[in-house]
């Protein structure tokens, strides 16, 4: 695959955007009396060189990456699924249903994992159907369904599935038979992410369905002009993204938390949106972006420890990154202009 000048400018612009965000954040660290070089070094060491840190980073990266992969597909179709958070939670809830209520023992984690994924997919298909049949904006519906999923989670965690032994709002730990195995010392999710990424790349760039999705995203009118089936694109695209968010939710339940609690997701579904954008909605870039972003999220606590920066200030970094990424399209032009001058 040959890189066009535009792609090169874009890459340079992304690196530049991240560098500027890092530079500004260094200023913040200095403001709090820290040493940015030391802070970033330790952050990197804790997130990638420490064996436990690396495992945790990879766990976060795989959840984030699997959600982002799904988002990269719908975003390519120009559909804004803001509901990955809810689909993730519902995936965990459905897996919990299989474990706590049905008690389906056969197949170990496989049944809850697949049912979790499927439920996430169907949950995302609801806004898809509303969009397809009634033209309801999916941004609103997906966002609202996040709250529905969240309140459902509260309902079971505070109510029917609460651990009767302790009375605390946490469900009981799942038996060992249900737990996802590790792969090469890492959570199984990492392997799943690395399998899904090329599959989605193939879907998007080498199948007719992927082509139609992209056409629909670039120009809806043109897709209708060419007579494409809107239902397959809208409902199907949202279903795929929900499927993967649900898979991540079920995976985290079966592979790392082993239980449900009120803060089952601390905003992963929203962070995944940033990761997908950071990766230009490209399935082969998403895993890289999610690993870097997970490292950053994980390491942000090091900043709080080493540089005494309030944890909340990491949101500043996320915000900065987002702002810089939004401005990359302008930067692309400067860089193109500069490249021609040199």
């Amino acid at each position: 695959m040959e890189l066009s000048p535009m792609q090169i400018y874009r890459g340079v612009a992304t690196i530049l955007a991240v560098s500027i965000a890092v530079a500004v954040y260094s200023g913040v660290i200095i403001l709090y009396g820290g040493d940015p070089v030391e802070a970033y070094t330790k952050m990197f060491r804790n997130a990638f060189l420490d064996p436990y840190g690396l495992r945790e980073t990879m766990r976060l990266a795989s959840a984030l990456g699997i959600i982002s992969l799904g988002l990269s597909i719908v975003f390519r179709a120009g559909l804004w699924n803001i509901g990955a958070e809810g689909q993730y939670v519902l995936g965990g809830l459905a897996a919990g249903y299989v474990v706590y209520v049905l008690g389906l023992q056969q197949g170990g984690p496989l049944a809850p994992l697949l049912i979790g994924a499927l439920t996430g997919g169907l949950y995302a298909a609801i806004p898809g159907v509303l969009r397809w049949r009634l033209g309801v904006n999916e941004v609103l519906t997906t966002l609202m369904l996040n709250y529905v999923a969240l309140y459902l989670l509260y309902y079971v965690v505070y109510g029917v599935w609460r651990d009767p032994q302790t009375g605390f709002p946490v469900t009981p730990e799942i038996p060992g038979a249900y737990r996802l195995p590790e792969v090469g010392g890492f959570v199984g999710g990492l392997a799943i992410m690395l399998l899904i990424a090329p599959a989605l790349y193939y879907l998007l760039f080498h199948t007719r369905y992927g082509f139609k999705l992209r056409v629909y995203g670039l120009n809806r009118e043109a897709a209708e002009y060419a007579g494409y089936d809107r239902r397959a694109i809208i409902v199907g695209g949202l279903f795929i993204s929900g499927l993967l968010a649900g898979l991540a939710g079920a995976g985290d339940f079966l592979g790392s938390y082993y239980r449900l609690m009120p803060r089952f997701s601390s905003g992963l579904g929203y962070t995944a949106i940033i990761v997908a954008l950071l990766a230009y909605n490209h399935p082969l870039i998403v895993p890289i972006a999610s690993i870097l972003f997970a490292g950053f999220l994980y390491g942000s606590y090091t900043l709080a420890i080493v540089a005494d920066i309030p944890t909340e200030a990491t949101y500043l970094m996320t915000g900065l990154l987002l702002a810089m990424l939004v401005s990359t399209q302008y930067m692309e032009r400067w860089i193109g202009w500069l490249a021609r001058r040199l």
């Binding site: 945790e56 009120p262 803060r263 601390s266 606590y301 709080a304 309030p310 944890t311």
Partner: peptide
């Protein structure tokens, strides 16, 4: 370290 969500204490 303040404001640490419940499932992020291990990191």
């Amino acid at each position: 370290v303040e404001s640490v969500p419940e499932n992020e204490s291990l990191p």
